[in-house]
């Protein structure tokens, strides 16, 4: 398959993920959208790496997965703490970043 097709699919997935981050109010869904963006980026890495006959992109995907796993642990911890603090996971309640 042509490399551009993969990249376009990756771009679409990335955009959908980003859109989800911005329009959804549910903290968990926002987090899932972020994971979607990670995966879009991974797809791009693998596609380009395969096209250029390199292996570094694939290695990078491994590291992105590591970061994603770490991020999942932290983000879900934050989600629990947030819920405990506010009684909801509506992200609009996170409005104190101005003090």
């Amino acid at each position: 398959m042509d490399i551009n097709a993969y990249l376009i699919v990756a771009g679409i997935l990335f955009s959908i993920g980003g859109l989800g981050v911005l329009i959804r109010k549910n903290l968990i869904v926002v987090f899932m959208s972020l994971e979607l963006m990670f995966n879009a980026a991974n797809l791009g890495f693998v596609a380009v790496s395969g096209y250029l006959n390199l292996i570094s992109g694939d290695i990078f995907v491994i590291f992105v997965m590591v970061v994603a796993a770490a991020e999942a642990a932290i983000a879900l911890g934050i989600a629990i703490a947030f819920y405990r603090e506010k009684g909801t996971i509506n992200i609009d309640k996170a409005n104190e970043l101005k003090w």
Partner: peptide
């Protein structure tokens, strides 16, 4: 500077 995390994310985007 309204303190809303999402609006910051939008600005960043």
């Amino acid at each position: 500077q309204n303190g809303m995390v999402m609006s910051y994310a939008l600005t960043l985007m």
